[in-house]
Design a protein around this nucleic acid. Sequence first.
DNA 1: TAGACATTTTAATAATTGTTTAACAATGGA
DNA 2: TCCATTGTTAAACAATTATTAAAATGTCTA
Lengths: 107, 107
Amino acid sequence: MMQSAQVVKALAALAQPTRLAIYRLLVECGPEGMAAGQLAEKLKVAPATMSFHFKTLSHAGLIESRQEGRFIYYAANFAAMNGMVDYLTENCCGGNADACKVPGKKC
Amino acid sequence: MMQSAQVVKALAALAQPTRLAIYRLLVECGPEGMAAGQLAEKLKVAPATMSFHFKTLSHAGLIESRQEGRFIYYAANFAAMNGMVDYLTENCCGGNADACKVPGKKC
DNA sequence: TAGACATTTTAATAATTGTTTAACAATGGA
DNA sequence: TCCATTGTTAAACAATTATTAAAATGTCTA
């Protein structure tokens, strides 16, 4: 299970308009990902700014990169997101599904 | 569906150790929630600091409050969290479940 | 190996955020 | 009504974060 500090890092990474947009584009792309420059063009953000945000998302474990020739492809790390979400809902209603009072949730 | 700015607000609200801890405690409590002072005591955080964080979480729509006598009870808003998570995974792999290449996900 | 291309790094600045202390409301019981 | 309790608000300060421009790194092709 993820630790609090790691989850805070992941949440902070996504809590910024440009990074959230980057992440969502990468979710759409699936594991193949997209090249850094292509993302920059799509979002109309300067390359240096993108690099800064890529680093933040990478350090948070939310995206991964691979080099292909001159291009660097970034892709969403779906496991990291699932871990984050699990941490947020962990032990809902005391971990007792029968006692769960959240409408339509059942923990 | 939620909007980007609203999701950023929710993510930012959770991207802080104390607030993340508050939120998780409230998830455990379920819809009944917990009194402000009780949360402050459990987390060993000064009341004024707690108030600041409650406000941040409330403005983000992640928690709700109700007054009971002298106490103010806070409770997690589960719908807001689900909306946030949906936004993050929206249109995964282009929205085509058959084409989804995320291991074990199927969008 | 020279040059063009793709991306990152560094340094500087502007804006945002978290914590503390002290003072301020609102509630309920003696 | 008076007082203790519960919680919020306001002001000040320290710390973190986002953006930009300029320089640097690495990779391919001729």
